[in-house]
Design a protein around this nucleic acid. Structure first.
Lengths: 214, 214
DNA sequence: CGTGCAATGTTACTAGCGGTAACCCGAGTC
DNA sequence: GACTCGGGTTACCGCTAGTAACATTGCACG
């Protein structure tokens, strides 16, 4: 019947879609964010127009691909964040989870963070305002929610939690990016340093007064 | 003479270079990071090859253009950071300076932060690893230096200062990016919230235990 | 059995990008 | 006057994202 047919088709289309996403994954893993539609199509054993039929445009494919990894990473982070432990331990565990993830697959991480959308299409009025990596935003919002649920911040807690969520995520991201490039210390050391920062060690430290010659 | 001639030429070349940079600035201000070499050349009243003679490739022009704004912004930040005041006040003033800058010229800010380098040139082996916004790195290093100079962090202070420098800059950046998009509060409120975070209010806050129904 | 219809796939194309080779022309110099 | 030389242009290359139009298969229906 009509229904069963459409189900069959849809199942087939979904399978194909998953195959295509996996091929795209392989290419991104190999070529980084520069992966071209041609390369992805070739890796999948087909040609470009099929990709476009499935995902609309490059942004669509990017979104679908990013959603997979973003969801997976966010699930790990949420697990670390929701563990039944002391707050500091939870924070450290979350930081470590994130850093381990970006350390394990730097190419994927760079793809998620630096989409490099060129907008070469005729319509030059691409949505420039919203081209920031959505993963950061989602992580920020998630963290904000957890903070607001679990930490007592008095009035205006919602506002404060959101600012902190995005701020902490940004701290984690920038420190991770820098660390990944220079590897100046071990992961554990980085985690401890960042947690120390969040724990107010900056405010607690004294001014340095006795410099050499002063 | 040979010398004077070369000086004349150099001066002329420098003037031209400055004119071109100003034209590029105007285009970036109008079109954001999507500004094309063609558009910039047209704005300057010339054609592409001249741009390439002056700047080598798009990356060169980007670097020259970015250096101007980066230097200017870093100078402002350093002034705020080095002011003779209490540490908290200095931190708040620095945060506010940064946020005011990105608020005043969002397009330029986006251009600096999200270069969107496509690497369409024949040689596909572009240096993908180093494509992160250099402004963030420079700010991180500067801040690290100031922290190490001014704050007493005991042994391993250098390492710690660098981690914190990059982490704090990332916090500022991500929070600023989010704030610029959603405008959920005033600039002053944002500054206070972030400073509170750095001042250890997260560690000081109590767990939220008495939720509704539990 | 043949015929129309829908999905699937390909080839061949457009438009625009970064980047370059080749030519062109006016100004000064011997 | 021929000759080089810096600044400028046209016309091109190879690449990209994205699309139109054509081929092929399979399957329901008269």
């Amino acid at each position: 019947m009509d229904t069963t047919q459409r189900t069959d088709q849809q199942r087939s289309a979904d399978r194909r879609r998953r195959e295509l996403l996996e091929a795209a994954d392989r290419v991104v893993l190999r070529d980084g964010p520069q992966a071209s539609m041609n390369a992805i199509a070739a890796e999948a054993g087909i040609t470009k127009p099929i990709l476009y039929r499935h995902f609309g445009d490059k942004g669509g494919l990017y979104a679908a691909l990013a959603k997979r990894h973003t969801d997976a990473l966010l699930a790990s982070l949420r697990a670390a964040l929701d563990a039944p432990a002391e707050r500091r331990e939870r924070v450290e565990s979350t930081l470590d989870t994130y850093l381990a993830a970006i350390e394990a697959r730097p190419q994927v991480y760079r793809f998620l963070m630096h989409p490099a959308e060129g907008s070469a299409g005729g319509d030059h009025g691409f949505d420039v305002g919203k081209h920031s990596a959505p993963l950061l935003r989602r992580m920020g919002e998630e963290l904000a929610q957890v903070i607001e649920e679990r930490v007592d911040l008095g009035p205006e807690s919602q506002q404060l939690a959101r600012v902190w969520g995005h701020g902490i995520v940004g701290m984690m991201h920038a420190a991770g990016d820098w660390w990944l490039g220079e590897r100046p210390c071990s992961r554990a050391e980085l985690v401890r340093s960042l947690a120390d920062l969040l724990w107010g060690r900056l405010a607690a430290a004294g001014d340095r007064v006795g410099g050499p010659g002063f």
